[in-house]
Simulated scan of single mutants.
Amino acid sequence: MTDSRSRVAASIPASRSTRLRSLANSFPNVISAGYIAGTNFFHGRLADERAQALVAETHNKRPGTVEDIAETAYFLASPGARHITGQTLHVNGGAFTTR
C-alpha cells in the first residue's frame, strides 16, 4: 500500500497547486527496512532463532542498523537524490532478493 501511495504522489504534476506540490515533494519515496537490530519494533517478542534467520537471509550476514536507515533518509533528502521519485528503496542487506 505504501508503494502505491508513493507512486500516486510522485505522479502528481508539481505545477497543479501548492497543496499537491507539497504532497508530491514530501512523500514520493519509501524506505523499506529489513530487520533492524536494537529497535523495539517487535516489542521484545522476536525469538533469537528468528532474528538469526533474518540475518542469515542477508547478503552481508549482518542485521541492519538505525544508522543504515538514517543514512538512506539523509541521501534521499540530499540534492543527489533530486531525480529519484516514486521509488521504494529496500534497505535490508539484500534479503529482499533472496525471497
Rank of each mutant, 00 (worst) to 15 (best):
S15Y: 04
H90Q: 13
R5E: 07
A73F: 06
R82C: 07
E49G: 09
A95L: 02
L23C: 08
T2S: 06
T65D: 01
T72H: 06
R62L: 07
R16A: 13
A9Q: 07
N40D: 14
P13D: 15
L23D: 10
S26E: 11
T85N: 13
A33Q: 11
D48V: 05
E67R: 14
F27R: 05
H83L: 14
A53P: 01
N60R: 04
F42G: 03
P79H: 08
L20S: 07
S6Q: 10
G80E: 00
A14P: 06
Y35I: 00
A73P: 03
Q52S: 14
A95W: 01
G34H: 03
T85W: 14
I12F: 12
H59I: 13
H43T: 12
E57A: 09
T98M: 15
D3K: 13
A81C: 12
F96D: 00
G44A: 04
E67I: 11
T39R: 02
A70D: 10
E49K: 10
H90P: 02
N92D: 15
N25C: 05
T72W: 06
D68F: 02
Y74E: 04
P79K: 10
G93Q: 01
S22E: 11
H83K: 11
S26G: 06
R45S: 14
G93C: 03
A10C: 10
D48L: 08
P63D: 08
V66G: 05
A10I: 12
Q87I: 09
A33D: 03
S6A: 15
Y35S: 01
P13I: 08
Q87C: 12
